[in-house]
Simulated assay, not measured.
Amino acid sequence: MTSLRAGVIGLGVGFQHALGLAQHPDCELVALCDRDPAKLHEASERFPGAEPFDSAEALLEGCDLDLVCVASYDEDHAAQILRALALGRHVFAEKPLSVHPEETAAIHEALERHPHLRLSSNTVLRASPRFADLKRRIDAGRLGRIYAIEGDYNYGRLEKLTDGWRGRIPDYSVILGGGIHMADLLLWLTGQPVREVMAMGNGIASAGSRFTGRDYAVALLQFADGTVGKLTANFGCVEPHVHRLLVYGTEATFENRRGPARLWQSRAADAKPEAIETPYPGVTKHALLPSFIAAIRHGSRPLVDENDVLGAMQLCHAIEQALDCGRPVRVQAPHLSRTLREAHHA
């Protein structure tokens, strides 16, 4: 097989995507795009074989590609993903796929029209050795029946809202922009869809800045099997970035934190937890690309597939709706047709 011709739109975190593509033996990095001339120049020096473009439209329309990585600003993702799919390109996108439910629905419909194309999103926590180890323990029954799970996306980078590009996006969502990592992680670990959500939030930490949205949001989740979940997105916390996670099972409790995680297997007052020292986060920004490229080349299932992406997006859209209306919201979890799933494994 010939190498996949790949391009990257957006060279912030997208620079890491470019590194991953350039290092992969089945890919040829042939195009780069950024609106910032300095970023484009820096990337062009690092990847001299890739043609530089100053607009996503120019790259998509003017370059023969098999794979496009979309790592632009959040509000630009949907249009670029839809155009890439319409042109017959596989897409690996930074999260979120879109900022509006209607855009997510349009991407879903585009995938149905193009069943041979693959799409994934960079919810990279699935590739963390710490969480991959936890997933194996849960699937093996080490924790017993999971009955509650809590995930806190403690970003600790308020300046990203008050001084960065996020703060310039009207109604920027910390759930879609950050909490989606925990949404995907909770869905993956439980293996269950969420049926209903309740949510509330505030913008106290960023009060007085140019950012006028919520910098903190919390949601309660009712999973299909009765498991109860909690998910938070906290950009204003006064601590470094961390993904706090608590998984409560009938046989054990898992706690992720800085340093070793802890696995409690006894309720006794003098009980001591097992220290779990698998690396955390221990993952690069391009860690999901190899499994996605393998899915394109060999028809295998990537670590994050199309239904995973759409499920996490629908959960986050429902949380946003619950934040706005102040009432419980049912989660619609669309799934791609049987024809499309079979096409991926043909």
Rank of each mutant, 00 (worst) to 15 (best):
G62E: 09
C63D: 12
D66G: 12
V70M: 00
Y73W: 07
Y73N: 13
D74I: 13
E75K: 05
D76M: 09
H77M: 14
A78D: 12
Q80P: 04
L82F: 11
L82N: 01
R83A: 08
H90G: 08
V91I: 05
F92S: 01
A93Y: 02
H100T: 09
H100G: 13
H100W: 12
T104K: 10
A105N: 04
E109D: 12
A110K: 02
R113V: 07
H114P: 04
P115Q: 11
H116Q: 15
L117S: 08
L119I: 14
S121W: 03
N122I: 00
T123L: 02
A127G: 06
A127M: 01
S128E: 13
P129C: 07
D133K: 01
D133N: 06
K135S: 06
R136I: 10
R136M: 11
R136F: 14
R137M: 08
I146D: 08
Y147P: 05
Y147E: 14
A148V: 03
I149Q: 00
E150A: 10
G151A: 10
G151K: 05
D152E: 14
Y153W: 10
Y153V: 03
Y153K: 07
N154I: 13
N154V: 15
E159A: 15
K160V: 04
T162N: 02
W165T: 04
R166A: 04
G167V: 11
G167R: 05
I169C: 07
I169R: 10
I169F: 13
D171N: 10
Y172V: 06
Y172N: 05
S173V: 03
S173P: 04
V174F: 12
L176S: 03
L176D: 01
G178T: 03
G178L: 07
A183K: 08
D184T: 00
L185H: 02
L186A: 00
L186C: 01
W188S: 10
L189Q: 01
T190L: 15
Q192A: 11
P193R: 06
V194M: 12
R195E: 15
E196F: 09
A205D: 03
A205W: 02
